[in-house]
Design a binder for these strands. Structure first.
Length: 678
RNA sequence: GGGCCCGUAGCUCAGCGGUUAGAGCAGGGGACUCAUAAUCCCUUGGUCGGAGGUUCGAAUCCUCCCGGGCCUACCA
């Protein structure tokens, strides 16, 4: 067999969230395919990375009071951990926020420039002056200009379905700062992709690059009319890479994200001493992308166009899968079906999900459903009842003797299963895993029938039939080993356990064609336990519980704006905190400072005869007479500060943005002046 | 609003123009007891979402309708 050289990618998960079981459909589908190719003896590498750029990351970092780099670094670690927990094995897992990616973006961008495909066009957009950022449609809310429904997003109305641009909204508000955004115009850079129209028409239709339904979809929806220019830049502020020949503008996240596939490859090449061009500029290397149907457009039109223009290899195939539903419905946080990878791993064995998805996945774009009852039934019946059971019911009879020295007559069972390997391999190759699993289970059924018929448990009773017993178990274990080979892409752990049981590691698909004889057999240990439905319940409960704090927050309807407007300060140690001596104090004198716009002069008592003279900038919100007698919290050990009107010996703490929007803190009833706030 | 996909036995799906529509699981009956109450044999069960049409012939092709799912809304 000719050895193929194959580069495989999965879509880059966005650094804005954790991996959940919906994501895993894709990474498991890809990992199985990669493992299959390697088992077949091909050279196959699997590249992935985090997709880290864009407005959403920028805003989230702000809301969490952290930097984008810290946020994406944390997510990168979490993603790697989750993938590893599911035995998903990348050759390299990088980040789009890497020097390699920046360099490749630059290289591809230059090529697109040289090809004369870039133009500058003015784009009108709402701008939030307080947050200092342009607003995507979903960051603007206002009243629908058609039906006057309040609280509608900037693009269309949920109530009447009207379409409009965010500039048409009545009384628009930024969801970031709750201020009224202004209309601003900015220059954006566009790629004239229409110039590649003929190339794309040809590419999408030829060479099995796409599933037929995808090719038809593109032909009927995009390629039947001129392609719009693609807006690939965003004005500052934007978390991403600044475009070197267009200062102040950044590459749109969808420009640099797919280039992340290449950047990840480059990191791997540098580490392994490989030549990058052997992978991305070679006719001999196949490139396979696995993606979800939602990002079809980017991977089948823009991406090939970018690669073509910059002289890199085009994808051999873009494999597109559907989405996951749970119990026939979209994953739901409140129903507990929005299950994070990490939550799953706390309760269940990853092999279960690997097998279950394999048993559901086909080569089409169809959605797949995770039915939890079926999940239990499939795993228990197929994996434990049929497959593992084969070893379980034969291995112990040959623990002492090992396998027969010569493979016995088995009525053609082994040969038939070896021949089935062909069809199973084809199914894997086509990503028709559910067909592959059905074929494998048919082999398992025949093997169980054979054991049933041969009755090793009766042979065992007669010492004269020891030889026959050994032969029957040799056959049973060899059929089992074939299954382990066929399932190895899906269940790498089972393949390893089988290797250990029979003292012969499974490394090649072709090992399913030659019976193993004469080897010792290790003591049998359970390879996979049955799914306990209680664990599923516990997992669902935990997923539902994870949603509850959020539900509480939303019930109070507290918006994220204040925190966004003033991000958290850097971490402060306890020692630093205790330096600040906060005390409960009573206002015993209060007078406005006539010459000052904002100041009120207070005398606060810390109990006994301890008094502090404090100037507070609260005139616009509090009348001095209303303050007399009330309790406040003040910073009592603040260094005195000389002001025009006297010396301020402390600070009265308050929140708010200023003006009428100032709120003094007061302790609950019972607090006494002079008590420290800890 | 636009679009894509699906609707075949209780459940999950295969079949995608041609003999009486299949599988696994579940259900019912039996066998076995080696095995993680696993396995084996037999068996019940469907007017292929609905209505039209094309055809000698349709679950399979076309149209419409109904039901479900999903995506999309600085981009289509």
């Amino acid at each position: 067999m000719n050895q193929r050289t194959i580069l495989v990618t999965s879509a880059l998960p966005y650094a804005n969230g954790h991996i959940h079981i919906g994501h895993l459909v894709e990474y498991l589908q890809t990992d199985i395919w990669v493992r299959f190719q390697r088992l077949r003896g091909h050279r196959c590498v699997y590249m992935c990375a985090d997709d880290t750029h864009g407005t959403a990351i920028m805003i989230r970092a702000r809301q969490e009071g952290t930097t984008e780099e810290e946020l994406i670094g944390r997510m990168n670690e979490a993603h790697r951990r989750d993938f590893a927990g599911f035995d998903i094995q990348f050759d390299n897992y990088g980040s789009t926020h890497s020097p390699e990616n920046r360099a490749l973006c630059q290289e591809i961008w230059s090529a697109i420039r040289r090809a004369g495909l870039v133009s500058t066009q003015q784009v009108e957009q709402l701008y939030d002056a307080q947050a200092g950022t342009f607003l995507a449609d979903r960051f603007v809310k206002g009243t629908c200009p058609k039906c006057a429904a309040p609280n509608q997003y900037g693009d269309s109305c949920d109530r009447c379905g009207a379409h409009y641009s965010p500039t048409e909204l009545v009384d628009p508000k930024s969801t970031l700062s709750d201020t009224t955004p202004e209309v601003r115009t900015a220059d954006h850079l566009f790629i004239n992709i229409e110039r590649l129209h003929d190339f794309l028409t040809e590419w999408t239709r030829s060479g099995d690059h796409l599933q037929t339904e995808v090719a038809n979809y593109l032909a009927g929806h995009f390629l039947n009319e001129p392609l719009h220019d693609w807006d690939v830049s965003r004005p500052a502020p934007y978390f991403g890479f600044e475009i070197p020949d267009s200062p102040g503008n950044y590459w749109y996240v969808w420009f640099d994200a797919p280039i992340g596939y290449m950047a990840s490859t480059r990191q791997w090449c540098d580490r392994r001493g490989e030549r990058f061009d052997d992978w991305w500029r070679s006719d001999r290397t196949e490139i396979h992308h696995f993606i979800g149907k939602d990002i079809t457009y980017f991977h089948t039109l823009f991406w090939p166009a970018m690669l073509k223009t910059s002289g890199f290899s085009l994808p051999t195939k873009v494999h597109i899968h559907g989405f996951l539903t749970v119990g026939g419905e979209k994953m739901s946080k409140s129903k507990g079906t929005f299950i994070l990878a990490s939550t799953y791993l706390k309760h269940l064995n990853p092999s279960y999900l690997r097998y279950y998805y394999a048993s559901k996945l086909g080569p089409r774009v169809d959605d797949i459903d995770l039915n939890l009852d079926e999940f239990v039934a499939r795993v228990n019946a197929d994996l434990v009842g049929k497959v593992v059971n084969l070893a379980s019911r034969t291995a112990k009879f040959v623990e002492k003797t090992g396998l027969s020295a010569v493979y016995p007559a088995d009525g053609g069972l082994f040969d038939q299963a070896a021949r089935d390997g062909q069809a199973i391999a084809e199914a894997y190759e086509q990503c028709d895993y559910n067909r592959a699993m059905r074929l494998v289970m048919a082999v398992a059924d025949r093997a169980n029938q054979y054991i049933e018929h041969a009755e090793p448990w009766n042979l065992r009773k007669d010492p004269a039939k020891a030889r026959a017993l050994q032969d029957v178990c040799t056959i049973g274990l060899n059929l089992f080993r074939q299954l382990a080979v066929y399932l190895a892409p899906v269940l790498p752990r089972l393949a390893e356990q089988t290797g250990a049981l029979l003292h012969q590691p499974i490394a090649r698909w072709d090992e399913s064609r030659t019976p193993l004889v004469g080897t010792p057999v290790a003591r049998f240990e359970h390879m996979l336990t049955r799914v306990d439905p209680k664990e599923i319940e516990a997992m669902i409960d935990e997923s539902r519980a994870a949603d509850e704090p959020q539900a509480t927050v939303s019930a109070w309807d507290d918006g994220p704006e204040p925190l966004a407007a003033e991000p958290l300060a850097e971490t402060c140690s306890f020692d630093e905190f205790v330096k600040v001596d906060l005390r409960v104090a009573r206002v015993v004198e209060a007078e406005a400072v006539p010459q000052a716009d904002k100041l009120v002069r207070l005398t606060v008592s810390l109990g006994g005869d301890k008094r502090l003279n404090v100037f507070a900038g609260i005139k616009s919100a509090y009348a001095p007479e209303d303050l007399l007698g009330r309790l406040v919290v003040c910073v009592a050990n603040l260094a005195p500060r000389k002001m025009k009107f006297g010396t301020s010996e402390g600070m009265v703490v308050a929140s708010g943005t200023g003006g009428k929007d100032i709120f003094l803190l007061s302790p609950d009833a019972g607090a006494k002046p002079g008590q420290r706030v800890h």
